[in-house]
Design a protein around this nucleic acid. Structure first.
Length: 597
RNA sequence: GGGGACGUAGUUCAGAUUGGUUAGAACGUCGGCCUGUCACGCCGAAGGUCGCGAGUUCGAGUCUCGUCGUCCCCGCCA
């Protein structure tokens, strides 16, 4: 008895026909002699009827059909009586009159909530992931994921990209995230590293004349997890030769507009907006601005300085800035609510936040600003802030970066509280990222994107003397405050690559020993190329409408990077360790690991 | 590495401020009844190391300390 139809398809079968369906029992409703069984498969729920007038010999045995029993049922499709139609079910106009059924296996009582009611807690869901994934909500998410794989693949194929699989066992390289190491039996004491991304391999494919490459690649980073970060994740990885940022942007605008049309039936306008990194920081206090609402940060340094307000004057004298966001109708806030808002700013490093109520369109009240600032300057301040009566000005003073980031968080907090975010999907390219970042602890610069990113032509002059001043030909694609992906034009000349390493304080010797193979490759005719990579899991989160990254990964890890279903990672035997030349260290760290197993 | 929240029947939660009889509810499970249910209904029953371990106390789900686990944030994540 093999399945002839998925449950959902039975809705379209004409009554009287015999079908065979298979699935799991969701629920049995025993009305005495009349028994209904909800059978579900990945497509839908179908009501199976055991009726003493129509299949008397089966009614008794239907009592065995408890929750999550697996069975195949053959029966006749029947139209439901008028009064028994169920418009909430795909199959609600029909039901299956069972002729015979086979129980394949029964189920222990499921330890998680399978349907209806409040969802079980995530710890249990992850431990019993196979049951969790059996829930239709979860299947829907993975169907979205599946369709997105297919859409993305065919899009790149249609646009002349070739899919190449790059190795999972790679060479460990310095810079960037911590590597997951894979010790080797054949090379006693040596380790492979799992790729943080296929970065160097895809550039090398450009050197190999592949011209347009893509891959849906697995990546691994041994760093602490977050709500939107897993140690193991998937990215759409792309590289292109002999082309421009303009073309790369255009192709990917087409990809995302098409994908969102296909998946969500949404018309995303193209081209996407663009904003430089500096403007994103100044206006939105973030390198991944959420443009679903406006509320730009405004600079008022020149208006409020020299007003005899101590902390402001000293900030301005020290080269700092005074900036604000205007909280629409925020004057209504209680002292406590304002203090909570101030804490948001403080958490991001601000020393404090001045909250100023706008009494009418022209004056402010309740703070030192009212006393110290002239009428004209108050009016000017409100003009710049674009404030109206009843608004609240949230003012922060300090160095430019701290103020931006603090107000960026305040801006998001206000939008969250007041529900200011529209339902739109606001894509934006953030461009001209800084090339490097100075790290005072290590007294050196680190690449903001990665060390193979090309500086902007006009900033090349600063590369050797003042690299922090260089902007990079690097870009991110941001959607509603989520970083979807990022990329850059790469360095394709060995000399420039050497200068870049020097700017990062990486000696010739170190560069040679760590990236020698790549520097060598660059010598053999490297085309100009650029690329980008997108976080596939985050994209699925948005398409599936979930805010939990673990929901879009079939078998995810917890924040502690543990798989609750398999209990990975586990300790291994001394024999296994010996084989690869490793020895257990008898300290508290290793005994901690032992306890988990 | 640091900060915060949580952990009580199979599940979701109350009970914790103010320590005190036998730790409750709903859903689920099991048994009985029920021929058009689809959150079926009605009657009944079972089901608890209160995460774990110490401590304070005559007495701890409740207070203290430690520990384990999950989540969220900072650091970290080119």
């Amino acid at each position: 008895m093999e399945r002839s139809h998925y449950n959902a398809d039975v809705a379209n079968v004409s009554p009287g026909q015999t079908v065979t369906v298979a699935g799991w029992v969701r629920k049995r409703r025993d009305l005495g002699n009349l028994v209904f069984v909800d059978l579900y498969d990945r497509s839908a729920v179908l009501q199976v009827v055991f009726d003493p007038e129509r299949n008397p010999e089966l009614v008794d045995s239907a009592s065995a059909l408890t929750r999550e029993t697996v069975l195949t049922v053959r029966g006749k499709v029947s139209s439901r009586p008028e009064e028994a139609l169920n418009p909430d079910m795909i199959t609600g106009r029909v039901e299956l009159i069972a002729d015979s059924f086979t129980i394949h296996s029964t189920s222990a009582l499921p330890p998680i909530q399978m349907t209806g009611g409040p969802e079980s807690n995530e710890e249990l869901r992850l431990r019993y992931r196979y049951l969790d994934l059996r829930r239709s909500e979860m299947f829907q998410i993975f169907n979205v994921r599946h369709q997105t794989y297919q859409y993305v693949r065919s899009f790149y194929v249609e646009n002349g990209f070739i899919e190449v699989t790059t190795p999972q066992l790679m060479r460990s390289t310095p810079e960037g995230a911590r590597d997951f190491l894979v010790p080797s039996r054949l090379h006693f004491g040596s380790c492979y590293a799992l790729p943080q991304s296929p970065q160097l391999m895809k550039q090398i494919l450009m050197i190999s004349a592949f011209d347009r490459y893509f891959q849906i690649a697995r990546c691994f980073r041994d760093e602490d997890s977050r709500a939107d970060r897993q140690p193991e994740f998937t990215q759409i990885d792309v590289e292109m030769s002999f082309t421009s940022i303009e073309t790369l942007f255009a192709i990917h605008e087409k990809l995302f507009a098409g994908l969102f049309k296909s998946m969500l039936d949404l018309d995303i306008p193209t081209p996407f907006r663009r904003i430089t990194w500096q403007n994103a920081m100044d206006w939105y206090g973030s390198d991944k601005p959420d443009l679903r609402f406006n509320m730009k940060i405004k600079d008022v340094t020149s208006i409020v300085s020299d007003s005899g307000i101590g902390f402001i004057d000293s900030v301005a004298a020290g080269g700092g800035v005074v900036r604000l966001v205007c909280y629409p109708d925020g004057a209504k806030l209680s002292r406590k609510q304002i203090s909570e808002l101030e804490n948001v700013a403080k958490k991001r490093g601000a020393n404090g936040m001045l909250a100023v109520k706008v009494t009418d369109g022209e004056t402010i009240s309740g703070t030192i600003l009212e006393k110290k600032l002239s009428k004209e300057k108050q009016t000017l301040l409100l003009e710049v802030a674009e404030a109206k009566a009843g608004d609240l000005l949230c003012i922060v003073a300090g160095d430019r970066m701290t103020v931006s980031e603090a107000l960026g968080d305040v801006r998001l907090e206000i939008a969250g509280r007041e529900n200011l975010k529209s339902d739109e999907y606001e894509f934006v390219w953030v461009t001209e990222f800084p090339l490097v970042e100075y790290d005072p602890e290590d007294n050196r610069c680190y690449a903001m994107h990665h060390p193979f990113t090309a500086p902007m032509e006009e900033d090349l002059q600063y590369l050797d003397t003042d690299p922090v001043r260089c902007r990079a030909q690097a870009y991110d694609l941001v959607l509603n405050g989520v970083e979807l992906g990022g990329g850059s034009v790469r360095i394709h000349k060995p000399e420039l690559q050497q200068r870049m390493f020097a700017a990062l304080g990486i000696s010739k010797e170190l560069a040679e020993s760590q990236f020698g193979f790549f520097l060598e490759a660059l010598k053999y005719g490297t085309p100009p190329h650029c690329g980008i990579a997108f976080g596939f899991d985050r994209l699925i989160m948005i398409l599936a409408g979930t805010d939990n990254l673990r929901d879009v990964i079939a078998f995810p890890k917890t924040l502690q990077a543990v798989c609750l279903m398999t209990r990975a990672p586990s300790t291994v035997t001394d024999d296994q360790l010996n084989a690869v030349g490793l020895q257990r260290k008898p300290n508290s760290e290793s005994s901690k690991t032992t306890k988990q197993n």
